[in-house]
């Protein structure tokens, strides 16, 4: 048995410890956010955050993640109550097929937690590993900028209140 903490919930799982996290998330926990793109750590579609840092779940054996806090796209909001960065992607209509978008969102979220006011160059550098094929790059960048603005705006409102 292996205990995984995903989006704040503990799961006791009976899985082959060599299984990459991606398949445990998708098949055992029925979470769609992390997506299979290459299985080689080359495209970023499977990106999740572990202890706040982006990790490629397709090449990370589940055994090394026991007891660590894992965040997937689903941990950021739901269709009914999307989180700030998800709302920003909707507002910018930052998707075509959308297959790469979960990885983009999770990586950008990890960046914004570390750096609430990133420059355009910093966002590009952060997302450079994640591939998009539809050519939605500029909308993705716009959505991350929007999420950063709105997060900072919410934070400064909190300061005032």
């Amino acid at each position: 048995m292996l205990r995984l903490t995903v989006n704040g919930r503990d799961h006791d799982l009976d899985v082959d410890p060599d299984t990459p996290l991606l398949y445990v998330l998708r098949d055992d926990l029925a979470l769609n956010g992390a997506r299979y793109g290459c299985g080689l750590g080359q495209c970023g579609a499977c990106t999740v955050a572990v202890e706040g840092r982006p990790v490629l779940s397709c090449v990370t054996p589940v055994s090394v993640l026991a007891g660590r806090s894992i965040l997937t796209l689903e941990g950021l909001g739901t269709p009914e109550q999307p989180g700030t960065i998800q709302r920003a992607f909707v507002a910018e209509q930052a998707a075509q097929c959308g297959y790469c978008i979960p990885g983009m969102i999770v990586r950008a979220h990890a960046l914004l937690v570390q750096n609430p006011d990133p420059s355009d160059a910093e966002i590009r550098r952060s997302l450079n590993l994640n591939l998009c094929r539809c050519g939605t790059h500029l909308r993705i960048l716009a959505a991350v900028h929007r999420a950063a603005r709105e997060t900072r705006g919410a934070a400064s409102e909190d300061d005032r209140s």
Partner: peptide
């Protein structure tokens, strides 16, 4: 706004893979 985007950005079932 596109009908399909909310599911795609939140991890709701959106693809044959799901």
């Amino acid at each position: 706004p596109r009908l399909d985007i909310p599911a795609k950005v939140t991890g709701a079932s959106a693809y044959v893979q799901d």
